Simulated assay, not measured.
Amino acid sequence: MSAEEKPIASVWTRPQPRQREQLTREQIVAAAIELLDAEGIEALSMRKLGTRLKAAATSLYRHVANKDELIQLAVDDVFGELHMPVSAERGQWRADVTCIATELRAMSLRHRWLAAELGQVGLVHIGPNAMRMAAGLLAQFEVAGFPADERDRAMGTLTAYVIGIAASEAAYLSLIARSGRTEQEWVAGLRPAFDDASHQYQRLREGSSAQQDLPPQQIRDDDFAYGLERVLDGLNSRIGT
C-alpha cells in the first residue's frame, strides 16, 4: 500500500495508554476545554496545557499525537452536552429537531471557539458524540418521511444554518467580551454611529428603530428562531416527494 493509499489515522481508533499513566485522556480533554473556553483557540498549546495540568508536555503526547487531535477530542466532548430525544415520532419531528438545533446553538455559544473549528476538524464526524447527534437527526428526518436520498442533505442544511449563525454570534460576543462592556452597553454605544451612517437609508433606520428598546439577546434569539422556522418550512415541503 502506497503512502497515498494509507487510511487516515484517527484518534478514535488508536488504543489509549494503560491507566497506569499519570494522566488520562479525559483529564487532558477537560483541561483543554477549560483553556479554550477561557482564552480561545489561539491560546491552546501542548506546553501551556501541560503547565495547566502540572505535567510535562511529553506526557500529553502519549494520549494525543498533536494539537489537531486534541481539538478533535475537545469538539466531540462538548457535543456530548447535547440531549437527544429518546425516540423519533412522526408528529413530533419538527419540535424535536427544533430542540436539537436550539441546544446546538446554545452549546456553540457556551464554547465560542467551537463553531469556527468545526469546518477545520477533519475527523470530527466520527467522534462518538457527534455521531450520536447525526444519527439522532437522521432518525428524525426518516420518521418524518423525508426521501432516503435527502436525509443527509436535510441534516446538512439544518446544521449549516445553526453553526453558521452560531459562528457569527460567537465572534460578536467574543468581541464584546474583550471590550469589557455588556452587550446592552455595546449596542447602545454603536447606535449614534449607525444613525449617522444610515441617515440616507430609511428602511435601515426604521428596522433599527423598531428594535431599539428590545434587549439585544432577545433580538438574537428571535432572529435565530425565525430563521430556523423558515429552514424547517423549506425542509417540510420535501416530505413525501
Score class of each variant (00 low, 15 high):
residue 186 W to F: 08
residue 86 V to N: 14
residue 57 A to H: 02
residue 149 D to G: 05
residue 181 R to N: 03
residue 215 P to W: 10
residue 239 I to N: 06
residue 231 V to D: 02
residue 124 V to K: 09
residue 3 A to I: 14
residue 7 P to M: 05
residue 53 L to E: 02
residue 54 K to F: 00
residue 43 A to F: 03
residue 98 T to Q: 15
residue 16 Q to P: 02
residue 238 R to W: 14
residue 21 E to V: 07
residue 159 T to Y: 03
residue 236 N to M: 12
residue 77 D to F: 13
residue 115 A to Y: 00
residue 36 L to H: 03
residue 24 T to N: 07
residue 82 L to H: 00
residue 232 L to W: 13
residue 217 Q to P: 01
residue 48 K to Q: 05
residue 141 F to K: 08
residue 50 G to D: 04
residue 31 A to F: 06
residue 161 Y to V: 04
residue 170 A to N: 10
residue 224 F to E: 09
residue 140 Q to V: 11
residue 216 P to R: 03
residue 8 I to A: 15
residue 67 K to Y: 04
residue 35 L to Q: 11
residue 236 N to I: 08
residue 160 A to P: 10
residue 121 V to N: 12
residue 170 A to F: 13
residue 203 R to Y: 02
residue 90 R to S: 12
residue 102 T to P: 10
residue 200 Q to N: 03
residue 120 Q to L: 11
residue 41 I to L: 10
residue 122 G to V: 13
residue 187 V to D: 07
residue 106 A to V: 03
residue 27 Q to I: 05
residue 14 R to I: 01
residue 105 R to A: 04
residue 51 T to S: 04
residue 75 V to N: 03
residue 231 V to G: 02
residue 180 G to K: 08
residue 121 V to C: 15
residue 160 A to T: 15
residue 159 T to V: 11
residue 198 S to I: 04
residue 47 R to K: 12
residue 92 Q to F: 07
residue 144 A to L: 08
residue 151 R to S: 12
residue 125 H to Q: 03
residue 134 A to Q: 09
residue 10 S to Y: 05
residue 87 S to C: 11
residue 46 M to D: 05
residue 140 Q to I: 13
residue 216 P to C: 05
residue 36 L to S: 05
residue 120 Q to C: 07
residue 181 R to K: 08
residue 83 H to G: 02
residue 204 L to I: 15
residue 143 V to C: 09
residue 216 P to L: 07
residue 141 F to D: 11
residue 155 M to W: 04
residue 21 E to Y: 13
residue 151 R to P: 11
residue 164 G to I: 14
residue 167 A to R: 08
residue 40 G to P: 00
residue 17 P to L: 06
residue 162 V to N: 13
residue 105 R to V: 06
residue 87 S to M: 14
residue 71 I to E: 06
residue 73 L to G: 02
residue 134 A to H: 09
residue 46 M to V: 07
residue 139 A to K: 13
residue 66 N to I: 13
residue 212 Q to N: 04
residue 45 S to P: 00
residue 112 R to W: 00
residue 44 L to F: 03
residue 36 L to R: 02
residue 81 E to F: 09
residue 3 A to Y: 05
residue 82 L to M: 02
residue 75 V to R: 04
residue 99 C to L: 15
residue 214 L to I: 07
residue 81 E to V: 10
residue 69 E to S: 06
residue 200 Q to H: 05
residue 139 A to Q: 15
residue 20 R to E: 13
residue 221 D to W: 10
residue 39 E to I: 01
residue 75 V to C: 04
residue 34 E to Y: 00
residue 21 E to P: 05
residue 121 V to L: 13
residue 212 Q to D: 07
residue 210 A to D: 12
residue 20 R to F: 13
residue 93 W to H: 08
residue 185 E to Q: 07
residue 79 F to V: 02
residue 178 R to A: 10
residue 175 L to F: 08
residue 75 V to Q: 03
residue 173 L to C: 12
residue 176 I to F: 07
residue 165 I to E: 13
residue 66 N to P: 09
residue 109 L to E: 08
residue 38 A to K: 14
residue 95 A to T: 15
residue 28 I to V: 06
residue 27 Q to P: 04
residue 191 R to V: 00
residue 38 A to G: 09
residue 222 D to Q: 12
residue 207 G to R: 02
